[in-house]
Structures are given as C-alpha cells and as structure tokens.
Write a protein that binds this DNA or RNA. Structure first.
Lengths: 369, 369
DNA sequence: CTGTTAGCGCGTTCAC
DNA sequence: GTGAACGCGCTAACAG
C-alpha cells in the first residue's frame, strides 16, 4: 500500500508542532478547514447573474434563457452547489416543505423495516426526505416525538398506530400537516387518513382456514396486546372465527409471551401443558411461529403431524423454514408506499380522498399447518 | 416601532374574570377553526415580552427571571407552541444544527435495522433528529443521496460503508460536516472517522474456530461480494485462516448465492455436489445459515453430524433455531450508538479523536457447528 | 435581566 | 428574460 508519508511535507513550513499527536499510524489528519460550501449568492456572482436567476434556473429551467442557464449550471456543477433546503423551506412555507416525518415502532420487527423501506423509496422518488423517529412509545414519549417532528415543518406525518396522546392528537387535528396513520383500520377514526389491514379480518380468515383444514383445538399466541390495537384485533378475529365456525371458545388456549422467538418456544410448552390434545397453534407473528417450530424440532415432534403451527407476516424465512410456514401475508412494503402516496395526493390537493384505505392480505397455505 | 405597547392585553394588570379563577386550569378548548400554529413573535406578544426573551426562556432558562419565565412557559404550554427548527437552524448555522443524516443499505437486513435503532436512540437522547436515506446504492445514487442529505445542513452524517462516489467523497472531505462511516475498518482510509469491526478478523476467527473443532473440509458461502468490502474481507479472512492453520485452500468450496435464505439452501446443494466429504459450511450471514439448516432438515441430514453450519450476525432467531446456530456476534445496536457518540464528540469539539474505532465481536459457539 | 438590530439563504412579488 | 426588495421565524451580538 502506498504510504505517501511525505504528503504533508509540501507545506511543511506551516506545520507547528502537531506531530506528536500520538497517532503514529494515521498519516493523515483531518484538516480543520471546514470549508463552508458556497451559497446561491456566490454562485450567482460567479455566473454573472442575480441570485434569483440561479434560483429559477434550478427550480424552473424553462424560465431562463438557454445560454444563461448553461452558464449557471456550469458553475453549479463546478462548485458542487447544493441548495440549502432549510432556507428553501423557510421562504415559502406552504409549498416547498420537503420533509415527511414518521414515527414507528422498533425496526427489529422485520415487518416494520419493510414498511419503512417502502416509505423511504416512495419518498425519495417524489423528492422528499424521511425524518425518522423510532422507539417504543408510551403516551408521553409519543407526544414528545410528534412535537419534535412537527418542529421541522414537515409536509406530512406518517404515524404507525393511532395516536394515543390526547395533546398530540389535538395538535394534529388543528394543524395544517397531512397525516396518515398506518394501523388497524377497523373501528377507529383516523385523524386525517389511515392505511392498513383489518387485523380482525386477517386473523379471522386464518382461523377459519385452520378450522376448515380440520383442526379442532386451536391455540392462539400473541405478544402482549395491552395498548396494541393490532394484536387485540387479531385476538378478537380469532375468537370470532371460532364462534362463527361453531367451536366453543376456549379461553385457556390463548397466551401472551415476549416478542422473541424464545417466546414462541415458551408458548408451545405452556399450551400443550394446558391441553394435551392441542392441534395447532396460531401465532400472531412469524417470529413466534418460527420459535414454536424450533421447539417442536427440539421435542422431536412432527409438524404438522403432532402439532401444526401457523404464523403471521410471511417474513422471508417463512417459505424456507422446515417445514414451510403457513402464514398470513400482508404487503408491508406496499403499505409503506401506499401511505406516502396518500400523503402526496393530499399535498397535491386532490379532493375526495378516502379516509380509510384498506390493504389486502392473503393466507399463504404451506406445510406447517 | 413596536406596536405592542398600545395593544390591549397583558399589562393591564387587571385581568377581569379569568384571572380571578385561582384554578390555573385553562380548559384548553380551542376554537374549532383549523388554525395555524403560532410563531414566537405571537407567543412573545401574548406574554408581554420580546421574542428574544421567549427564545432565551426556551433555550437557556437560567438567563431569564423566574417570573418572566413562568409567564412565558404558561403561554407556550397553553398555545402548544413548537419552535420552528428550520428557522432555528438557519439563524445560527454553526451551532444549532439538529439533524444527523444517515445513508444505509436496505433495512430488511436485520443487522441494519438494529443499527439504525441504535443510531435513532442515541440521536434522540441527545436531541437530534435522524434523517434517513435508505436503499441499494450504486455510485450515482449514493452520490445523489449524500447531496440530498447535505442540503438539510446536517450537523453530521453517518454512512454505511465507505463512500465510493468520488464526487461525494470530495464534497465530504472539503465540507464542514462531521462524518462517521460504519464499515469494514481494515485497510481503508476514512473520510473523517470510522466505526466498525474488522470483517477479516471475524471471519478469520470463526474459520480457525471451526478448524480447531476438527472440521476438515470447510465451505464458505456469501452473497455477491463484488463492490462489498465487508464480504470481501470475510472471504479473505476465511482463506487466510485456512492457510494459517495449514490447510490447503480449496477454491472450489467457495460459492456466492443470492441474499435470501433460499440462497443458503442452494449453497448446500451446490457445495455437497462439489465435495461429498464436506464437513461444515460457514455462511457469511445468518440468513444464509438458517436457509442452509432448513435444507439439511429437508434432506433429513443431522446437524452437525452429517453437515455442520455456522453463520454470521447472531440474529434473534439464531439461538432459537434447531439446532442453535454457531455464529459470529457483532453488536450492531451498539455500533449504531457508538457512531452517533463519535459524531457528537466531534461536534462538541473534542480533540484527539481516534480516526478508527474498532468494535468487538465474539464467536458464539452453539450446537450447529 | 431584557430589548433592539441585523441577518441566516432562499423564494415570492413585482418592477424593469 | 432578468433583477431588487422584502420577508419566512428565529437567534447572536450587542446595547440598556
């Protein structure tokens, strides 16, 4: 490797006594120059025009004569000019906001990650930037996060789950930002617009599917549903399906476990202890289901012979698992994109937008159940 | 001249009816008209002070007298004032930037998601917001993404992988934003600072570990390494370990497959076809390893009896898999946090920051190999 | 402790 | 087709 140890000797004269900085192996230090990038004014000066003309050449090229434009663009390229979005957004507050704020649960949920990816892609295609706040929110933190987002004057907000904090809700209802909530779409009133599946419907459909395949004792595992619409709806959907199919609803076959694959394993142990005749376990997430499958392997149980397992989410691994996982597929990536699309429609001023945009789903029937 | 003196309100001292109510409870029923949020000027007027005083009360409460502060805060609360961060950042360009931009590969990689979570948490604890650009970048897209980020005048940038696009690199070297690259830390020269593991070391360690456990024919699977430092380093580490341990380096036992668990399954088939005596397969990601394990189940092969599998990453599932996965553990969440910490140190002007901050790793020895 | 002045860098508006 | 003035909302720097 070329170690051009002499590369600073060129201007050796100006080097005081920095040498002893104990680095020894880092030949190059970062110069503290911090050269400020040029502003539009300076670009204009170098192109021999007024700043306004530069602005136009960038925003609306047709309104500038070809020669002027060429001259300007040449300087822009040469100097690597990047327009200051802060100033840009400031000067015309309504029309040039270019930020979409979003608040999401922990990304470790692969579904959330896909969704964020969808939002991100759609945002960038439309020239917006995504300001991300991510965390496990209680009402206060949620409120604070929304305020933090609003401070950046976003064109819109995409919120995962309906806003709980009353203060924040009020703020959003009064304010002039577009809001899309991505969540359970059943039985709630969105602040502005909502995109999502009916978790009730998905769980109902899967449970019916299992009943129709001949399973009789159907367990249901979820992570803690308290304060979580989506999980609650899934549970209700499960219960309703049992009732609709003429099964007695066995409360003892429901269980809550931590949100890890270890939780899925735990659920298997707990549920079979409660009911040795258990047929199948419907897990409210693939992570749980995968954990449950591993537990069956550990016990040497055939799947679905001894115990069948169904999941929710259709993560990448679901299809590759042994045995392949029967699960509920929701297009999370598409949901993310759709949320952004709705937001953009509102920003464009389109009328008669639906307040609720349902997203489809499907039951993926594989070997595990 | 300021018009406030002649105006109606506050200083009249005798606040007719609402003042008398000892209840500080202002039942915040705002008029149902969707109103624009108020600016600082308006808050100041209602509190009977100058805008600057409001600014100070918010930014540096000690510099305002307790009574004034109380009066201001009351109005701020009542009106739900949120400071315009755009304007704030504009007015003092060096000191009040509050955005950290980041560019990351697809979040579907659970490692990346964890890392982003670490960055996000650390950012918010320090009062910064995370501006996220996410995608599968070629050089041009990368360049464009970085420019987009820079337009928001971020205090710093955290970039996943070293910047390839020469234009962007130049921009960052000249500019005054702090930059942390999260990546392979071996043999590269960071723009400013770098945080990461030596992928060479990790792969070398795992390969040695396998050799030391008695495996003789060691396959290596990775996703396409072209243009990907980290994967290349892992491969070289694998090769070097074999040489260091006195094994002949068998090029035929290396393979590249797509970045899915299906790829892992494919690798098993391909490699055993090449060498029926294959002992173990070292997969450059857990996703691949998990796919490989499933393929073994499908074939009814004992793990590690017939074929052992090792992974890289220690995803949540790795420990729960059947059999539990031997893998390389890197603390991605911590890496994300660390990257932000380094950035903040630079922003605080700390001296003698190391240009390269290595992150530790460990070999997690479980049952699969 | 508090207020006043002057701009941050750009875009809108209107004049040329 | 181009330019000059003004203002977006906030804060550094200096009065008082």
């Amino acid at each position: 490797m070329a170690d051009k140890g002499s590369d600073d000797s060129g201007e050796a004269g100006s080097r005081p006594s920095e040498g002893g900085a104990a680095d020894g192996e880092t030949p190059k230090r970062r110069s503290p120059k911090g050269q400020q990038r040029l502003g539009m004014r300076e670009i204009a000066r170098r192109a021999g025009v007024a700043p306004m003309t530069v602005s136009r050449a960038l925003a609306d090229p047709d309104k500038v004569s070809p020669e002027t434009r060429a001259r300007i663009m040449a300087v822009v390229e040469r100097e690597g000019f990047i327009r200051n979005q802060l100033a840009s957004s400031m000067s015309s507050l309504k029309s040039r906001r270019r930020i979409i704020g979003t608040m999401v649960p922990p990304l470790i949920n692969s579904g959330i990650a896909e969704q964020v990816q969808g939002m991100s892609d759609a945002c960038h295609e439309a020239g917006y930037q995504l300001l991300l706040v991510q965390g496990d929110f209680d009402r206060d933190a949620e409120d604070q996060a929304i305020r933090a987002l609003l401070g950046w004057q976003p064109a819109g907000l995409i919120l995962q789950a309906f806003v709980q904090a009353p203060g924040a809700r009020q703020l959003l209802e009064d304010g002039d930002v577009a809001v899309v909530e991505i969540s359970e779409v059943r039985g709630r009133d969105p602040i502005d617009m909502a995109v999502g599946v009916s978790n009730f419907d998905t769980a109902h459909a899967m449970t019916c599917h299992l009943v129709d395949k001949g399973y009789r004792r159907i367990g249901f595992v979820s992570t803690p549903a308290h304060g979580n619409d989506r999980l609650q709806q899934r549970r209700i959907g499960y219960r309703q399906a049992l009732i609709d199919r003429g099964h007695v609803y066995p409360a003892s076959l429901e269980i809550e476990v931590p949100i890890t694959s270890a939780g899925g394993a735990e659920a298997v142990s707990a549920l079979v202890a409660r009911d040795a005749a258990l047929d199948v376990i419907f897990c409210s997430s693939d992570t749980l289901a995968i954990g449950a499958v591993q537990e069956c392997h550990r016990r040497g149980w055939a799947i679905p012979g001894r115990l069948a397992i169904a999941g929710y989410g259709d993560v990448d691994l679901a299809a590759q698992l042994y045995p392949p996982l029967t699960t509920v597929r929701v297009d999370r990536y598409g949901m993310g994109r759709l949320a952004v699309d709705q937001l953009l429609k509102r920003l464009r001023g389109e009328e008669n937008l639906p307040r609720i945009v349902p997203v489809g789903f499907s039951i993926v029937d594989r070997a595990s159940a």
